[in-house]
């Protein structure tokens, strides 16, 4: 009943009581400005990015031959780099993120939990350029030293970029998964424990099924972050064009310099590209691919969240 009243009283507000109000007009204008900006951005990516798909057709995404001096564009190595680096980042950070989320939500007393959680949220706010600085100064030499048997050319490798990304998305994934786990009501745990189930069984059968949509959404959000991160990746990936190994499953590329879509877009090649229609279109085409990737992943995350809510409320 309360909800019914709630809806109807706001519904009254939506009916125009006066034909014109300054507040309403300004709100509408501001909304239109924001929507126009975003539509303009999407249109910009579509209109300026699509010519390259007509020129190079499928070879734009299947070939690794990006040579702008001879007007040849194939972005396969960057797409490969983007996908490899962000998936590896998720794989690397997931055990730690989930482990610490379970620890804080299921085992730690509330007094300690607050501190751990605020510290993790503090880390989520650290700018990516600072993570880049840490990566250049600490991780790069470490990777070079530890993986010497694989004879890396330098410390700038796809692996370095993945590890930095894994550290960067860890706070996001951990904090959101922890929220999902905490969202499961205490009764489920108490009932399971009182039936004599162990902590593990309680967690697996009582808590996890109810929290899993939230955890999946958290992982997808982390993946979206990883795909779009520019600065930290740019600093440690080596930015070598057209490296694509023959076999998709070979581990060799991990210890070589590479390129992701974002590290390409963040480089000074953008200044060179402007004014040469094909080159510019190739760059914006990369942006378009990135935009589609991220859009699909965020939409998937929202869908999972929505399904989870629907499932929980019956």
């Amino acid at each position: 009943m309360g909800i019914l009243v709630f809806v109807s009283s706001k519904a009254i507000l939506s009916k125009p009581t006066f034909p014109f109000s300054v507040t309403g007009a300004f709100s509408l204008i501001f909304t239109l400005v924001s929507l126009l900006f975003f539509c303009g951005m999407a249109l910009f990516l579509l209109i300026q990015g699509s010519p390259i798909f007509f020129q190079e057709q499928l070879s734009f995404i299947t070939d690794a031959d990006w040579f702008y001096r001879i007007n040849q564009y194939g972005a396969a190595s960057m797409i490969y780099g983007t996908i490899l680096v962000s998936f590896l980042a998720i794989v690397l950070s997931l055990p730690f993120a989930l482990g610490s989320a379970i620890l804080t939500s299921e085992f730690l007393p509330n007094s300690i939990r607050v501190y751990v959680k605020s510290f993790i949220e503090l880390l989520a706010g650290i700018p990516s350029v600072v993570y880049g600085l840490l990566g250049v100064l600490f991780l790069r030499p470490l990777i070079f030293k530890w993986f010497a048997p694989f004879s890396p050319e330098s410390g700038d490798t796809l692996l370095t970029a993945s590890v930095i990304l894994a550290v960067m998305i860890l706070p996001t994934v951990m904090s959101l998964s922890e929220d999902a786990l905490r969202g499961v009501s205490k009764e489920h745990r108490e009932v399971a424990l009182s039936l004599g189930l162990t902590r593990l069984e309680t967690f697996v059968h009582g808590v996890l099924p109810r929290a899993i949509p939230g955890i999946i959404a958290a992982v997808l959000l982390g993946l979206g972050r990883a795909l779009g991160e520019t600065i930290a990746v740019y600093l440690v990936i080596g930015r070598a064009d057209n490296r694509l190994s023959d076999s998709l499953f070979s581990l060799k590329p991990l210890f070589e310099a590479g390129q992701t879509i974002t590290s390409k877009l963040g480089g000074s090649e953008l200044y060179i590209a402007y004014g040469e229609p094909t080159h510019w279109s190739a760059m914006i085409g990369l942006g378009l691919i990135l935009f589609v990737f991220v859009g699909v992943i965020v939409a998937m995350g929202e869908a999972v969240n929505w399904l989870g809510r629907k499932y929980q409320h019956g």
Binding site: L265, L290, G295, V298, G301
Partner: peptide, 19 residues
């Protein structure tokens, strides 16, 4: 709005550079 929230920041930079 959720999708906009996920747009990589570098795309804002490129659009701003162009426009």
């Amino acid at each position: 709005l959720y999708i906009l929230n996920g747009i990589p920041s570098v795309l804002f930079g490129i659009f701003g550079f162009f426009f």
